[in-house]
Structure formats: C-alpha cells, structure tokens
Computed example of a mutant assay.
Amino acid sequence: MIFTNKVSKIGIYTAIVLLALVFSAPFLYTLYTSFIPIKYVNTFTGLENWTFDNYKTFFTSDAYSVSKWLFNTVVMTGIILIGNLIINPMAAYALAKLDFFGKKLIFWIVVITMMIPYHMILIPVYVNMAKLGWLNSFAALTIPFLYQAIYIFMLRQFFIGVPNELIEAARMDGLTKMGAFWRIVYPLSKPVLITVAILTFAGTWNSYLIPSTLANTPEKYVLVVGLNSVKDMFFENTPLVMAGVVLTTLPILAFFFVFQKQYMEGISNSGLKG
C-alpha cells in the first residue's frame, strides 16, 4: 500500500512538472529570444552568443521613451491599486454589514454591472473624459477605474463571514463604525485584499485598450501601448519585440510569486460564503 501511494505521488508530481513545462514553454521561448541577435532567431545558440543589446536598445535609443512609459505605467497602476484597496472594501463592508435604505437595490446594481463588458461603455467614458478635459492625463487613466464591481462582490462575500459579535465587541470598546472596519475587519481581510491587489495589478499593468483610447500621445503612453507601437515599427525584429514582452511580463510574475500564498487563500475565502 505504501509503495502504491509513493508511485501515485510520483506520477502526480511528474504530471504537474510536465504541465508546468508545457505552459511555461511560450514564456521561456520569449525570454530566450529576447537575449539573442536576430540572426539566431528560431535556432538554438549557446550562452556565448546571448546579449543584452535588445534591452539596451529600449533604454538608450532616442527612438523610444521606455523610461517615461514605465513611469506612466507605475503611476497609473499605483493609483488604481491604492484606490481599489480603499474604495472597494468600504463599499463591500457597507453592503455586507450595514443597514441602510436601498441596500439590496445597490447590491443588485453592482451584480448587474459585473455582467456588462467594459468595452460597451468605453465610448461614453471617452466622451465624459473629453468633456471634463481629462484626455491624455492621469485623471482619465485612473479615476474611472478606482473601483471594480467584481472586487466589491468578492469582498462582500468575505465580509459576510466575519462574525457580527466581533464588530459589536469593537463597538462596545468605543470604536466607531469606521474604526471597527479599519482596525478590526480590514486587517482580517488581508488574503482577499491581496487577491484583489494581484488581479488589479495584472489587469492594469497589462491594459492596452483603455490607455490607448484615453491617452493617445506618445508622452502619455503606458508601457504596453508604447511597446506595441515599437512592435508595429519593428515587426520583423523578433528579439526586440520579445524583449518588450518580457519587460511587461516580469513585474506581474514577480508580484504574483511574492503574494501567491495569500492569493490562493483569498480565492478560497472570497466566494464561498454567504
């Protein structure tokens, strides 16, 4: 029996490793291609021919503004990330624990909003940003996206599972409703907040359609939009294009690997209660 269990575990782990290799193969190819000269594309070459020239080109050539694009991306992602970690939890807590007129109606509006693809309302958003004079600004790239209905729903489901007795005890100790939320409930929701942070970071960092629509001047490009313009200019220079892909992918991978444990905990706790 013990031998059978060991063989079974070995088989499972082998299958997992093989699947991991299959799914990581495209990125490994991208990473490899980004380090080789163009003459070695679609061939295998040793480390002696690898080079950082493709990356140096992005950061040293006057034809690109990668440093500026990267700065724009960091600012946009940071503002949206902070906003989603403040506004979404407050809205979710109100829908989960507070009693007020129209609570159920507001909740169902949030649910219905989740079913509407953002592409359907992009034109009205563009028109509103134009009327406000916010086009080609960080305001247009951030303010409409400081909350997300799906995250409000996830957090609400988590907050429903927080015992009311815990909140009542905090209130008896002299905390206000907001004090009980920020000092008791908010810290307890760390796993699901990290899940929200990862999803927000990945979605914002890799966003193309919205930034390219609301900010269409090169000095306001974010990294994905700017590198996509490089791809259009140098489509046949595969190593240069792949270097751009790596630049946009590595921050997301690093963010996920740092918080992957909390991410899995948040996924398991956010949608199964209530």
Rank of each mutant, 00 (worst) to 15 (best):
Y147Q: 11
Y147H: 11
Y151K: 00
Y151I: 00
F153K: 03
L155P: 03
L155C: 07
L155K: 11
Q157L: 05
Q157K: 08
Q157A: 04
Q157E: 10
F158A: 07
F158T: 05
I160F: 13
V162P: 13
V162Y: 10
P163R: 08
P163Q: 12
P163H: 10
N164L: 14
E165G: 12
I167T: 10
I167S: 06
I167N: 05
I167R: 11
E168I: 01
E168V: 06
A169V: 14
A169F: 09
A170I: 06
R171Y: 09
R171G: 02
R171E: 08
M172N: 09
M172G: 04
D173E: 12
D173T: 12
K177N: 14
K177T: 15
K177G: 08
M178G: 06
M178S: 14
M178F: 15
G179Q: 11
A180S: 15
A180C: 13
F181D: 04
W182F: 15
W182G: 02
W182P: 03
W182K: 14
W182A: 07
R183G: 07
I184A: 03
I184M: 13
I184L: 14
V185W: 04
Y186P: 08
L188E: 08
S189V: 04
S189D: 04
S189L: 09
S189H: 04
K190Q: 11
K190E: 12
P191D: 03
L193H: 04
I194K: 00
T195G: 12
V196A: 02
A197K: 02
I198D: 00
L199T: 01
T200C: 07
T200V: 12
F201L: 11
F201T: 07
T204F: 02
T204S: 12
W205A: 01
W205P: 02
N206Y: 09
N206G: 12
N206S: 14
Y208H: 08
Y208R: 02
L209F: 14
L209D: 03
P211R: 06
P211F: 01
S212V: 02
S212G: 02
L214W: 07
A215T: 07
N216I: 05
N216K: 09
T217N: 13
T217K: 15
T217I: 15
P218Q: 11
P218Y: 06
E219I: 13
E219F: 01
K220V: 07
Y221E: 08
V222R: 03
V222Q: 05
L223H: 09
L223G: 06
